Amino acid sequence: MIRYLFPLVALAGCTPTVATQEPSAPPEAGTLGEGLCKIEPLADLVGSAASSDLAAEALRRSGARAMRWIAPDSAVTMDFRPDRLNVDIDAGGKVTRFRCG
């Protein structure tokens, strides 16, 4: 009987714990809409080489708070974040398009 209980007790130590978090306060007036991504100002950057300077310029122009490079055949999460700029690049490291989310 004990030999059947030991694996269960050992696995009990492997279960993840869930951290609870208090809900955050609503944004203050005047901050609504800030950080929302806009791709219209980025049209002239399509075809540019991917670089840290390009990333900084794209973030500044788009108004996004976060950014990620997406290379061909990359796995990416499907979560939608209105404050994130997605930069698709080709195998040669050139920007092919910008997307928000």
Rank of each mutant, 00 (worst) to 15 (best):
W69I: 02
E34N: 13
F6Y: 05
R3A: 14
E22R: 11
I89T: 07
G101I: 03
G93P: 00
I89M: 08
L54S: 02
V87G: 00
T20L: 12
R3N: 09
A91V: 11
L45D: 09
A91R: 11
F6H: 02
W69D: 00
E22N: 08
R3T: 09
P7L: 09
I2F: 06
L11F: 14
P26T: 07
G63Q: 00
P16W: 04
V95M: 05
N86R: 12
A10H: 02
I70H: 03
S51H: 05
V87P: 01
R97P: 07
V18M: 01
M78R: 15
G13R: 03
M67D: 07
A50S: 11
Q21M: 03
D53E: 13
G92M: 09
F6G: 00
I39Q: 12
G101F: 04
K38Q: 08
Q21K: 04
P82N: 13
R99N: 10
L45I: 10
I70G: 02
S62C: 01
M67C: 14
R3M: 09
T96Q: 10
G47A: 08
Y4A: 10
L11R: 11
L5H: 07
A49N: 03
R61F: 05
D53V: 00
M67Y: 05
L85A: 09
A58L: 02
G101R: 08
A58K: 02
C14P: 02
R60T: 13
D44P: 10
A66M: 12
G35I: 02
L59F: 10
V76H: 13
N86M: 11
V9R: 10
V87D: 01
L32Y: 15
E40Q: 13
C37R: 02
A50V: 06
S74C: 07
A55I: 06
S48G: 13
C37V: 09
T20K: 09
R65V: 05
V46D: 10
A75D: 15
V95L: 06
D90W: 02
L32A: 15
A19C: 04
V9S: 04
R3W: 06
A75S: 15
S52N: 14
P23Y: 01
A71Q: 15
I89C: 03
G13S: 06
G35A: 07
L8Q: 15
P41H: 08
A12L: 08
I70C: 03
S52H: 13
P72D: 14
A64W: 00
R68Y: 05
L59S: 14
F6R: 01
M67W: 06
Q21F: 07
A12Y: 03
D83W: 11
C100L: 07
T77N: 08
T31H: 11
G30E: 03
I2N: 06
R84L: 12
D88I: 04
D79I: 12
G101H: 08
V46L: 11
A19Q: 05
A29M: 05
I2E: 09
A56C: 04
L59C: 11
L42A: 06
G47T: 07
P16S: 13
A43C: 13
R68E: 11
S62H: 01
A25M: 12
L11G: 15
D88T: 09
A25T: 08
K38V: 03
A58H: 03
F6C: 00
F6M: 08
T77A: 06
C14A: 11
T17H: 13
G13W: 04
A49F: 00
T20V: 12
D88N: 06
A12K: 01
R81P: 00
L59G: 10
I2Q: 06
